[in-house]
Amino acid sequence: MSDLDPRTKIVSILCLSTLAVFLNEPWPLLLLFVFTLLILLFLRINFFRITMRFKKLLPLLLLMLIIQSIFTAGGEVLISFHDINILTSNGINSALCILFRLLTLFSSAMIIMTSSSKDYVLALTQLKIPYEIAFMVLVALRFLPIFIEEIKDTLVAIQLRGVDLQRIPWRHKIKFYTRFLAPLLSRVMLKAHQLAITMEARAFRVYRRRTYLRLLQYSVADYVVMVFFAIATIVVLARDFLY
């Protein structure tokens, strides 16, 4: 399944996130989340890394849940303090909805990472988007990690030159970062410039057209997955609008 066409993946992400936004009850949303996780499992994504990511978001999620459950009124009152209802069944319901919705959105977005950036360029060009634009997307996707690496290297170099970033107090840290922001940015710009030169020196955009080593082709699995997602989304949306 990891060789699903990137276009299929884009469609599935769109469908999953539409569903996540439109569904409005905790149980179906939980089901949707589990389903997304199953897809990720099929795509052989590194689960460890996902959980690490979620871990950083956890405090934020908790805060939202608490706020949501406190400020939603209605339903059975579970906890109250002098006449003020603190926790109601509706509050819990909507908090759970938000929780599963966000989890689904995050994990469906992760489907994107299972194809290489170059495949998305192909997907875009094969959707008849001009390849210059598709390449700009590639460049954004490709250069970003290169830039991050560049910045990391520089921070290491600065520390090796005697600045104890791990130990200096916060006040100084902020001063430090503002001081090095400009050189870091100019460094990244220079790198972008050099990479652009390299691309053109290898005949990029010499003709209006371009061929590709690999062409994307839908397989039967792609059709099945896409049709399945389309129907599921339509059914759910129709149910929502009709009743």
Binding site: A203, F204, V206, R210, T211, L213, L215
Partner: peptide, 14 residues
């Protein structure tokens, strides 16, 4: 992909 980049720009057949 790095090596394919230039020949792709030249519009060579796959």
């Amino acid at each position: 992909d790095e090596i394919a980049f230039a020949p792709e720009n030249l519009c060579l057949p796959v």
